[in-house]
Design a protein around this nucleic acid. Sequence first.
DNA 1: CTGAAAGCGCTTACAG
DNA 2: CTGAAAGCGCTTACAG
Lengths: 360, 360
Amino acid sequence: VGETPETRTVQRDPTILDLARAANVSKTTASRVLNGAPNVAPETRARVLETIKRIDYRVNAAARSLRTTRSFLVGYLVPAVSNDVFGKFAEVLEEELRRDGVGLVIATSGWHPEGERLALESLRARQVDALVLSLGDDRGRAAGDRLRGIGRPLVLIDREVEGVAADVVLTDERNGVKQAIDHLASLGHRTIGGAVINTLVRPGREALAGLRAGILEHGLESAGEVVVPYQRVGRQMGHEIAEQMVGSGSSAIVCAVPTTVTAGVLERLDELAVRVPDDVSVVGFDDSDLASVIRPRLTVIARPLEQVSQRASRLITSRLGEPTRPPRVETVRMNLLVRDSTAPPPVRARRLSVPQRSTR
Amino acid sequence: VGETPETRTVQRDPTILDLARAANVSKTTASRVLNGAPNVAPETRARVLETIKRIDYRVNAAARSLRTTRSFLVGYLVPAVSNDVFGKFAEVLEEELRRDGVGLVIATSGWHPEGERLALESLRARQVDALVLSLGDDRGRAAGDRLRGIGRPLVLIDREVEGVAADVVLTDERNGVKQAIDHLASLGHRTIGGAVINTLVRPGREALAGLRAGILEHGLESAGEVVVPYQRVGRQMGHEIAEQMVGSGSSAIVCAVPTTVTAGVLERLDELAVRVPDDVSVVGFDDSDLASVIRPRLTVIARPLEQVSQRASRLITSRLGEPTRPPRVETVRMNLLVRDSTAPPPVRARRLSVPQRSTR
DNA sequence: CTGAAAGCGCTTACAG
DNA sequence: CTGAAAGCGCTTACAG
């Protein structure tokens, strides 16, 4: 009542036209200042900048995107953000991208192929400028076909998909597992069992290869291999691993699996009255909050999680700036962190392995 | 060479005009089908739908946003997504919102006020339709002033900011802590210490109130209160809590703090050769992967994390559909989950408390 | 150094 | 049930 139309229009956010008028310039000049273009007189620039603050102007992201065909959004497809490792990836990725004014949209697959398809679709619909992918399967034909059709820059984390032009950040799990076995062998272990994440993803394949290579190289005996499907990631799976490894007389277990699984292994070993590391040594995988809370303090082979996501973010930035450059593959090393869950094998076990040793 | 211009234009995504032409309708009709408007002839609709599939059309999000002034994006401001609890919130939130075709953009504050300001700013710039906030401080004037200026629907998770019209999902930490104390009192504990998250946030204030009320109600003795600043969330803080509580003769510690802190408490107790639960009982807060991995299995008061984020997502949906409805406040209860970290106090301690009992 | 004008791909009254 | 046209808020050649 009694208000002028102007005062009632307060709700509407100021547009670039409002800004231009308030600063007494054209939209073009206002836009130039907004985008840091060089050809603007210093006083003009200062005046526009001051006006931006005064009227609390911020550019309309949708309009800018429509014009530039860039959404300034990157999507991250991930099995579960609540997972200790993927959560860390997401966190660092977002921090890095934000410096370039790029936002991170997440979509979770829930560890399922169909969920992954849906998540990917939602990210495409969102018209992200690039995608970072922690896929649940990098081997199936479906993965490759689907990815090829996306038409946006792709960064794969620890995955290799054939026939897809993507930038890739790899971790050397093969070497990581080898480090673990070197460590165990030097402690005197002769019979070693291993659990790896499913071989549909590269870390599983590499860890398995490292396991076999290490055992062969040191002339050890394998107490068996367990492959963990994504859908079975959890403590229960760990229980089964523990049972199998104890059953086959392993004095050390390399757990190249998510930490919840390793926690299940320890849990079951404890229930079976098998002491760690006195009776059995355990090596975990990755060093997150989760691992840090487990007792005994876990000896782990750890991916440098921050480094992986930093590299992923840099690959994105460089790719967005130079869309046609050839795909890049970067590899980071894993680190063996020796703590309290590994020790020399018990005397009994050592004795048992002696005859085998001399047989060779 | 020799290609027609058409074949070279393959890169460009089809627009609604391409769709309309291919389906032999107008842009208007195409748009109607896209948005499920009712007034389209069944055959027309079928034809357009078929064409959408055939040419793999998907609507340009930026253009749609520009027209509708909706970005179909919700922002989640959070101290750290790698945190077990916030990660879970983010995950469920994304799953729920996706059903409504809404994406989730995250921004992390790194537990710092300045980081929070920046994160909030980046979310605003992203022009999200609504914001979900896990703030680091819901008391300071800054929080309220900043939030009031946002001009977008707000959902606060476990926070209360005065003078801000926001929908809110609360957890009843006061009652949760009371449940823990009831439990401890019924086990025979007479001297109880407590640690709570900082009182700049509601859970800290409520937990502290619950702690005091419970101790008073049962006529117990307080072994002291420790308040944990956000910046000090970590195991080291837990060490200090353990030392203080042991020093003041507490036979039970209520840890209404992030699980990493509680893990630090257990760690230090172990180093001090104080057994849990034989010498001291410990109650943790929240039940995540982190808590599930700690030994002894933690008795906890737990927020129903999925429920909290589901409610948050529903509040958003309803708010977006009905922007002017009055703000809603919903409260969920905490659950006491009794496991292995709580037991009757040691006999010595029980004896000590007897005289006090009879003195009353 | 500055500005007028076109156009990005949609949605939505409006008219029929 | 269908379509022509306007316009959302920007950026970017183009001209001066």
